[in-house]
Design a protein around this nucleic acid. Structure first.
Lengths: 232, 232
DNA sequence: ACCTGAACACCGTTCAAGT
DNA sequence: ACCTGAACACCGTTCAAGT
């Protein structure tokens, strides 16, 4: 005797669609195959559903991307406010954001393309602002500081100058490349040569990125702290 | 008696296609209607040509975008190296880049999406590196500095925290918004309130962006200079 | 209320054919 | 050598129809 098919358990017994389920699936797809793999059609296929069914839970693709990014930002651990050390708390907060973004590299491009920010993102920025305020940083300085730190507040290493691939090579390969470039790009080739010889700097590109990120972050925080002290 | 139709002057008398002409047309299209208006098909239509004809002068869309961006970077004025004031020269160079990028706002997204950098871009970075070297900045510090300045070297104001739209509103509108947000985003609403009252800060969003850009740039340059002096 | 399929208006690009 | 048109494999989304 066949069981009665009641709502929520159609002939396939598959869990019904929901915004949550759609967004989670999209996030998994992006994590695994990068953002260009996330099309409405492929996502639907992944969920075993007609492409048009997605539109019952997401108004359009922009909404989908926004929801995905909110999921990521919600994943960032919020650091406790430490009245005695706003700089340390802020540093920890930004590094926490970076950890999350490293797990979801596609989020950067989506966030930068977004035009209006969601409540989730506002909440994160409000938390960061709270850290500044806990240290008595003036609103005006905090405002400029937020602009200055830029997308690094969310843990992005905003580099156009990405030489991490270069330094994946062995020193002798780099030396060869550097000599070939010497005529046209004398300064860059000089830089490549020296850095490839300096073993303490080159410890694998993953570590390098972390070093450069913290170097930049500390330079920014030190500068902001200096202005804060000068003002008080 | 009909004129003979010779090469270069087909029945329409239109100038023949060339890489240069394709790239210039694409740039004009992007300048006027933003980057999403630049499709192979629309570009071909703009040129009065079959879409497939473009592929004789451009290997694919990626090549097209790369060529467009090279055109932009080539537009940046290169500042003379000033041995006595590397910081001032660098500042001037970055602000020159910013002027160019303001004329071609679409270039930022294309540049950030690019994976490998062209000779044109390498030449620009080499010029920037030359400015550092002219001031005797060590290669190691210069390397970190380039990573720290990040995409700002090319004049981008890398802001996720874009409140320029907000401050386009009148003070009373902002005050209303701030009060509505107060419960959920106490720190941000406090910031909005104060900034909207401070008339010297809000002089139109265009000017604001310039101020924030220079504020961030100077903070970075001052930090780098401090490290440079500490090392020597 | 939720899901579906056909259809529309777009993409970039391959390939064989024209001149 | 350069250009063309038809065709292919994709997009996001509207709309009318199903349950």
């Amino acid at each position: 005797m066949p069981m009665a098919t009641h709502a929520g358990e159609r002939k396939t017994g598959r869990t019904p669609l929901s915004r949550e389920r759609v967004l989670r699936a999209a996030m998994a797809l992006a994590d695994e195959h990068d953002i260009e793999a996330v099309s409405m059609r492929k996502l639907a296929q992944e969920l075993g559903v007609d492409p048009m069914s997605l539109y019952n839970h997401v108004t359009n693709k922009e909404d989908l991307l926004g929801g995905m990014v909110d999921l990521v930002v919600d994943e960032i651990d919020l650091m406790p406010v430490d009245d005695g050390d706003w700089k340390g708390a802020l540093r920890a907060q930004v590094l926490a954001a970076r950890q999350t973004m490293l797990r979801h590299p596609w989020a950067r491009g989506v966030l930068e393309a977004r035009t209006d920010s969601s409540p989730t993102i506002m909440r994160y920025f409000d938390a960061v602002a709270g850290i500044f305020r806990s240290g008595g940083v003036s609103i005006d300085l905090m405002h400029h500081a937020l602009h200055t730190i830029g997308s690094r507040v969310l843990g992005f290493n905003q580099e156009l100058f990405d030489d991490s691939n270069t330094f994946d090579q062995g020193p002798e390969v780099i030396a060869l490349m550097a000599h070939q470039m010497a005529a046209e790009y004398p300064n860059l080739s000089e830089m490549m040569l020296q850095i490839s010889h300096d073993e303490t700097t080159v410890v694998g590109s993953g570590c390098d990125d972390t070093f450069e990120f913290e170097f930049a972050l500390d330079l920014l925080l030190d500068g902001i702290e200096r202005l804060h002290h000068a003002a008080s």
